[in-house]
Amino acid sequence: MFWEEVAVVKRIEWNGLDMVVKYGRKVSEVEAEVLKMGRSETAAPVPKVYGVARDGDEVFIYQELINGRTLYELWPSTDSSTRGSLLCDLVHHLNSLHALRPPSPATPLGALVAPPDERLSRLLRLDAELASDPIVCGSAAFRDWIALELKRRTRDVLAADVEKLIDALIPLEQTVGLVHSDMHGGNVIVRDGHIVALIDFEYAAWAPPDIAAAVCGSEARQMAWTPFVTFLQRSA
């Protein structure tokens, strides 16, 4: 269930307009819908979608080109004051996304681009061990599922320690919102000291917001620009 194929991203020009096209067999029209939702319903800097096309089993998403450099490129040479400002920007934008709510309480949690019975594996980058994921709706059910997976995948960890970890990761009062869930430095575009775009929403998911920190990429953890927690081990 865990998808490994890499999408292609290219800069192109069409009728005098510079834009970016993302395409491939793993690209989904749903990602374009997520971009549109994020742009129209939040204050987060999400690229505009110009159009979506399908050619055989490949999907093409044509979107706004936003000039700048990635946070990954800039981070080593950025002073502490600018880092703090960028962090404030990032938290503000992510909170704006998190404020979005699923269409209904019965909406399955997990990655939006995946089928309902693969959404959780897609969100948490889990290798397939079961024929399908359970359909989980709501924060309480999500907590229960995470606890079950932790106990099953980390057999050397005491059950009481798992419960403490779950309480730390996903407080009971957590509401479900839209999370980017791939928020590493390469997916943040910066210009003139400000974040001007969040890109690459292929892992976007309905989930409790605190889960976003736990599933961010290793590059972001190494850069230490948010309190990431590594909480899932893939050992069977």
Score class of each variant (00 low, 15 high):
98 H>L: 00
78 T>R: 03
211 I>T: 11
139 S>P: 10
69 R>L: 04
235 S>F: 11
122 R>Q: 14
151 K>R: 12
142 F>L: 08
139 S>Q: 12
104 S>E: 07
27 V>N: 06
21 V>K: 09
144 D>L: 14
106 A>F: 14
207 A>M: 08
79 D>I: 01
80 S>H: 11
104 S>F: 05
196 V>T: 10
92 H>D: 08
22 K>C: 00
138 G>P: 05
94 L>T: 04
34 V>H: 01
67 N>D: 11
44 A>H: 04
103 P>Q: 15
77 S>P: 01
142 F>G: 01
34 V>Q: 01
205 A>L: 06
94 L>K: 02
12 I>E: 14
230 T>K: 00
100 L>G: 09
106 A>E: 15
12 I>D: 11
17 L>R: 15
92 H>R: 12
128 A>R: 15
73 E>V: 03
32 A>H: 03
95 N>G: 06
17 L>N: 13
177 G>L: 07
124 L>T: 03
33 E>V: 04
194 H>D: 11
14 W>D: 14
220 A>W: 05
22 K>M: 03
215 V>R: 02
123 L>Y: 09
96 S>E: 07
9 V>G: 02
223 M>A: 05
117 D>T: 10
224 A>Q: 05
13 E>M: 12
109 L>H: 03
62 Y>W: 05
184 H>L: 07
18 D>E: 14
32 A>F: 00
72 Y>N: 10
159 A>L: 10
90 L>V: 02
119 R>V: 07
209 P>F: 03
94 L>P: 00
68 G>S: 04
47 P>L: 08
148 L>K: 14
221 R>H: 09
75 W>C: 02
184 H>V: 03
171 P>F: 04
138 G>V: 05
73 E>M: 03
74 L>G: 00
136 V>A: 00
58 E>S: 00
12 I>C: 11
235 S>I: 10
164 K>T: 13
177 G>S: 08
190 V>S: 03
150 L>E: 01
235 S>E: 14
123 L>P: 08
120 L>N: 04
115 P>W: 07
116 P>E: 14
10 K>I: 11
109 L>F: 03
27 V>F: 06
135 I>D: 07
151 K>P: 00
236 A>I: 13
52 V>N: 05
75 W>P: 02
226 T>N: 11
220 A>C: 07
118 E>W: 10
14 W>L: 15
31 E>P: 04
168 A>M: 13
26 K>Q: 13
161 D>C: 10
